[in-house]
Design a protein around this nucleic acid. Structure first.
Lengths: 158, 158
DNA sequence: TTATTGCGGACCATTTTAGTCCTCTTTAAA
DNA sequence: TTTAAAGAGGACTAAAATGGTCCGCAATAA
């Protein structure tokens, strides 16, 4: 279903809470409470986010986690990449040598187009965008704050 | 890693072969041979593509599979959707009632923006685009035939 | 009538994912 | 100086998803 993992989903929820007070330091347990996610799981997510420099950590008593950058500068792409590694739909887009269909596969190269498009989509949306409480229409549908359109162009890249 | 499943990957490879002769009928076994994928697996993929009306099938001797539409009209989105269901990064984008964080989650609605962006990206690329043998630069990097850029706009949708 | 081909679904092995836990390190404060 | 509160790192397990195979049935051309 082309889903992101639950952990990435959690990460965005957790960071959404943190974005409300971008310079504050939060203990993992407090975040677990406000996000309604298990403590150990929240810790796991935050550890991954530290490694990817999405949040900063302070150890020791009164320690905790803090956004490394403003919500405006924290892209959804960087969050997903922190938990799932490079954003690419196919294995071979990351490691070409790893593909078994190599000889008979004639669509490989064109994946890069799609991958870049998706990466761009995820980079275009930031934590600040996500943290805005969505306006809800009377019909129950959400009205997003921002729309993204595609504009295919035909010039070769690079 | 935000991957598509192997089966979707296979589907695109298989359909890539079929796109070379868009009106021809191919037996599953023949396609398995030319794509270098196991017979039963190819069958499984093709069955899913029939259900989603991406290909048509003819039963009986001399039967086989045939593209339901021209390669130009067959989007990558429809292929992925055939094998993995609706294209949406999160569970709750498909079924809002299914979300356990509902009360504490304040980012839900904004996923629709991202999902639509990605769906659009995948709809913009067709089988015809993918079937073009990628030009390979001397450095080993692929030079895609087409590029897709994002142009965020700030008007609310609908 | 038979050989060929797709249909539908069951089934299982493997891999991936999610979640928990344990021990160690760091640091603030009593 | 000690203690409690926090994060770091990694091992481990249960559950779920995925990939791949197989079987008996149905349709059709020769």
């Amino acid at each position: 279903m082309l889903r992101i993992s639950k952990l990435s989903d959690y990460a965005i929820i957790i960071l959404g809470h943190m974005a409300k007070a971008p310079s504050q330091t939060f203990a993992a347990n407090d975040l677990a409470g406000s996000a309604g996610i298990g403590g150990p799981t929240v810790s796991k997510v935050l550890k991954a986010l530290v490694k990817a420099h999405v949040v900063r950590s302070t150890r020791g008593a009164k320690g905790g986690y803090q956004l490394a950058q403003t919500p405006e500068k924290t892209s959804i792409a960087s969050i997903i990449a922190a938990l799932e590694g490079p954003i690419a739909l196919t294995e071979c887009s990351i490691d070409l040598n790893h593909c078994e269909q190599a000889s008979s596969c004639n669509v490989r190269g064109n994946w890069s187009v799609i991958n870049r498009a998706i990466r761009t989509a995820l980079e275009a949306v930031t934590l600040a965008d996500m943290a805005i409480t969505p306006t809800m229409g009377s019909d129950g549908f959400h009205i997003p704050v921002k729309d993204i359109t595609f504009q295919p162009r035909r010039n070769p890249e690079q």
